[in-house]
Nucleic acid binder design. Sequence first.
DNA 1: GTGAAAGCGCTAACAA
DNA 2: TTGTTAGCGCTTTCAC
Lengths: 326, 326
Amino acid sequence: MSSMKDVAREANVSVATVSNFLNGKKVRPKAAKEIDSAIKKLNYVRNNAARFLKTQQSAFVVFVVPSVWSPFFSELTFWVQKYLDELGYKMVLCVSENDYQKEKSYVTMAEEQRVAGILSISYSDLTSHVHSDIPLVSIEKESTAQFSLVSSDNYEGGKIAAKELNKRKLDNLIFIGSANHNSVEMNARKAGFIDYCNNHGLKFEIVEIDSRKKDKKVIDSLIQKIKSADTSYGIFAHTDELALVLTEEFQEAGIKIPEQVQIIGFDGWQLTADTQLTVSSIRQNVEEIAKEAVDQLHKEMENPNYKEVSRLMIPIAFRPGDTTKN
Amino acid sequence: MSSMKDVAREANVSVATVSNFLNGKKVRPKAAKEIDSAIKKLNYVRNNAARFLKTQQSAFVVFVVPSVWSPFFSELTFWVQKYLDELGYKMVLCVSENDYQKEKSYVTMAEEQRVAGILSISYSDLTSHVHSDIPLVSIEKESTAQFSLVSSDNYEGGKIAAKELNKRKLDNLIFIGSANHNSVEMNARKAGFIDYCNNHGLKFEIVEIDSRKKDKKVIDSLIQKIKSADTSYGIFAHTDELALVLTEEFQEAGIKIPEQVQIIGFDGWQLTADTQLTVSSIRQNVEEIAKEAVDQLHKEMENPNYKEVSRLMIPIAFRPGDTTKN
DNA sequence: GTGAAAGCGCTAACAA
DNA sequence: TTGTTAGCGCTTTCAC
């Protein structure tokens, strides 16, 4: 692979002139021509690693996510990539699978590469491993209060779910969450639901489920209860995934949705930009989350002195689907 | 940010010793101790850009995909990331949105960064822009015969779809594809279907649809036909997305699935690792595609002389769902 | 506008 | 084993 030196020799100029030319500074027209053809002849490609070594400016941003294989994360990844790309940054995608060791190694890698910034959605406490002064913005969760945070308003989402179910005048309200998904955000969703119910004098029930095993026992007892009762049920499932499972199991058991049971999920999964799931849901504004997170990171990357830790709550809204009436 | 020189000074050794220590070579125990504490004291982090400049070995692989926000691509991205990670490579995720200019710029970036390799699933002719000798492996499509290819056996998939429908003794067979998705792979799916039908003396019909507009006209005439007929229909939709749209529209029109119509899609979309869609489908072996592509790239990255262009066809299989009987 | 030369932080060859 | 030193390919003074 040829270097700038080769080009300079071929064009009968110095490396400095080639560098200037490449960086858009003024060079004598004749020199420009000769450099240009030398580049073509030698198939020269600028080496950015060397360039970076000198300028200390990386174009990479590390994005740490627990998963990319799920509608929510793939949508988030899409938007983050898009907004980074618009700013001229490249995304290094790191899938942590919620593995603490992996998260740590990604942070180390980011520091060794001297990347421009880190964007992370981490449920463990990754942020405490950042030694350097690389800008970092957290999405969804940040416990050390050391870095900026962009998050959906989960608490408000829980309230909206309760409100929407209440609007539909259902006899029984149930919150279903999975015990093995016990994060701050999940609890906020639950708390919002509970608070709304309490504030409005609504009776409700809390059900816990082991979503990994699709917990037949809990689901079956729910089915029995619903089938034997002569009243209507409203369910708020704490994720779309859970709402989907419930919908399928209920329908298989002969329960009519939304006639007998109405279900609202959380997340607002979209398969693609224009294919949405049929479950009614409290939809996170994924694009907005991505945009705000990238914006905040951008500020911190542009200005190393900028050290205003911000907390941004992104509004959330009900998106009707086939599992609720109206 | 402190450098190796600082560490060396602090530990009273030479930079070479620090370098050796960092790279796992033997150093005198006392030196090791002192270097270690110097590193901690100075908060030293190795600079990989400088390291690369010397060793000429990048740990990055560029992955170019049209989209990441769709179950197929997000699953593919997941596996590719996983297998790259296992080999110690980091993935730079580039979403092209099928934009030729973007694809070109990603290749340029890859070359300037001197990345270790490129993995691409590109429907335009991106490969012709690779000037350098960076290893590249194509997924799904490669027209220049210059690079290795890993692809699903789309033709075989079309045949399987026809076979599965035929097994179910349906009166009318229909292939539905979208006119605006006119690639080699899509045509292979269609051709497989047609060939199977012809070879087995089956009558069939070809329907084209503009999937972007959800082409009401075509769908409505299909619905009329199905509702007025007293015979059963079997449909092979050339993607799961299309199969989903058809299923929903049919059901909304009061057509029973799979009683009156049986539908098979293509791709085998999974929302997450353990959540699959309900449409019956010809499922691509996404993990295998990713694994083979990464393997092939690995060979080429490890051994620059390795220049055996391979074409790998990954088998494909029918995955029953709720839109077919049995 | 241009060129010589220093140096970014590291590795590797060589000598000690 | 360890230290000295010469680059890797580029940018950036600073004279000219």
